[in-house]
Amino acid sequence: MRSLIPRLSFGRQPDFGVPRDPAPSRWRYRLQRLMLTPAFRLALRIGLPMVISASVTAAWLSVDGNRQAVLDGIEHAKRTIQQRPEFMVTTLEIDGAEPALDSAIRGYLPQELPVSSWDLDLVELRAGIRELTAVEDVVLRVRPGGTLAVHVTPRTPVAVWRNVDGLRLVDGSGVMTGMIRGRSDRADLPLIAGDGAREHIDEALALFAAAEPISARVRGLVRMGERRWDMVLDGGLRILLPTEQPVAALDRVLALNQAEEVLSRDIVAVDMRNGHRPTVRMSEPALVRVRRAQDETN
């Protein structure tokens, strides 16, 4: 039986007898048409999720702590991979360097081992090591097995250069490779001196090679006025070489020496500066003796 007290009823009252009207409401109809609009559907299907996800991400990232946490996480993951034993460098291997250079090179290489090969900047290390004057070239390589192999090509000194502040070793291209305390430390190398001597070391080496027959007597080469060489022999004997073709001039001196033993005479200098007029400067006593002999003959 129906309740006699009228109740508040929400929603639609069932109206008996009238056939149900299936018509959509105006707004439902419009909504359906809107949903059938291709552009709207596309916006709803792609645009809306994108906007929502982007805004959520942006909101989350706007907190400093979250952003830091993300960066830390990335960094941690990176470290975890980089610190794997496969990537660790545990030993150093330096070849081609004498002990002094070796220790100098070690100063450039990482001090604390093991270190990840990701943290090694080989290019920078190589540039640092190449700054050492004694190193001509260096090849750095991380070998499988965790070895940092340093292959050093050291500069080989070819001459000793006497400077105001001491003796220095010079390689073939004129680069100083080190210092020595005394001449006797590297008696095997020829001695050069004077301003501009280093720049013309190849010429000096050619002269030393040419002076091979008298090598026992050669003390060294002195660059004179930054343009020509003086070869100094023992006893202060000097061979003054010209600017042009000094080797040919030296050869003439040697030939003269071979023929007439010029260099064994009591002379102070052989002046070859003028090729047409080689000149011999005798020592003071010899000159006196020559004068005296000339007087006696007269």
């Binding site: 299936p22 018509a23 959509p24 109809y29 359906q32 048409r33 059938l36 609009t37 291709p38």
Partner: peptide, 16 residues
């Protein structure tokens, strides 16, 4: 009534 018919036909067609 027109709305009912049009809506149902649109729904079947899948186009506006």
């Amino acid at each position: 009534a027109i709305r009912t018919a049009v809506q149902a036909a649109q729904k079947m067609a899948g186009v506006r």
